[in-house]
């Protein structure tokens, strides 16, 4: 029982990490929190479900299309709305935070309301990736769909972390996160890097939404809780730390699952807040966060 709950916690945690990774990358590069992150997740879920059900697109094509939809939305949002943030970069932190919070929060409400107008307030269940009877692996029952979703999520999660650490783009992203003006001086196109980070984050969140659409049917406001959990995770892991997002995501998944058996199932969404309060009390910079120095 315990081991199976641990494993299912790690599975949930993988999807949380997928969302939190994008969020923490955005924070690392732009120093803002994207309050519309849950809506990227929602768009991914709906793109997948609607392409499959309404247009009859096969799953193999619908899943990448959902990722592309999320990435495209991220790209557009960055280009149209987040660009002005750079103008105030460094000059005046207050104006930047103010603008970013107001605009991303308003965007989140706008996307929820627009989606409710377009598809209605109902939830639509997504198709399985693979059909088949549940498998027994080491005494734990998993459906082939869950295994496939987990595999894809892990592939993208580890792939993004690998690219972040070893590719040229990844190095540029980390350079901008460390010191924006120094990176610009060294010839990194900071605007382009920010756009790529936003698009990647949108794509990852949309992927999570599409992969989970069979277990959690997408509705216009489905993104609220995944988003809140990723906020908890990025604080837990340390704002701007990709490794922290991964570890934090797995940790939150396990804690929620253990809490669901040992404390109460119906309140499992609230454990994140308790965890958040504990981190803020004990280790406000998060597990992998660095002390921010102020000049």
């Amino acid at each position: 029982m315990l081991s199976s709950m641990l494993v299912s916690g790690l599975i949930t945690g993988t999807f949380y990490a997928l969302m939190a990774l994008g969020l923490t990358m955005i924070f690392g590069v732009l120093r803002i929190v994207n309050f519309a992150h849950g809506e990227f997740y929602m768009i991914g879920g709906f793109a997948y479900v609607l392409l499959y059900h309404s247009l009859g697109v096969p799953i193999v094509a619908a899943l990448p299309a959902a990722v592309v939809a999320g990435a495209a939305l991220g790209w557009v949002v960055e280009r149209l709305l987040i660009r002005p943030v750079y103008a105030e970069m460094g000059a005046r932190q207050q104006g930047r935070d103010e603008y970013a919070i107001i605009v991303t929060f308003a965007l989140s409400i706008l996307l929820i309301a627009a989606m409710t107008k377009i598809v209605g307030p109902w939830s639509l269940q997504g198709p399985r990736l693979i059909d088949g009877p549940p498998l027994l692996i080491a005494g734990i029952r998993v459906s082939p769909h869950q295994l496939a979703a987990l595999g894809i999520a892990l592939f993208f999660l580890l792939g993004t972390l690998y690219l972040l650490n070893y590719s040229l783009w990844g190095r540029q992203i980390r350079a901008v996160a460390q010191n924006r003006s120094a990176a610009a001086v060294m010839g990194v196109d900071v605007g382009k890097v920010s756009t790529i980070v936003f698009a990647t984050a949108g794509g990852l969140a949309a992927l999570a939404g599409a992969l989970l659409s069979n277990m959690i049917s997408p509705s216009p406001d489905v993104g609220a809780f995944p988003a809140i959990k990723s906020y908890v995770i990025i604080v837990l892991g340390g704002l701007g730390s990709p490794l922290g997002a991964l570890i934090g995501g797995l940790l939150l998944g396990v804690i929620e699952n253990l809490g669901a058996i040992y404390i109460s199932f119906s309140y499992r969404d609230t454990y994140g807040l308790v965890l958040l309060v504990v981190i803020l009390l004990v280790r406000p910079n998060g597990l992998f966060g660095e002390m921010r120095r102020e000049v």
Partner: peptide
């Protein structure tokens, strides 16, 4: 310093 108030109040309100 940082966006902690916004993150925590959002989580608090929804929860």
């Amino acid at each position: 310093s940082g966006p902690y108030l916004a993150l925590t109040t959002l989580a608090l309100a929804e929860i």
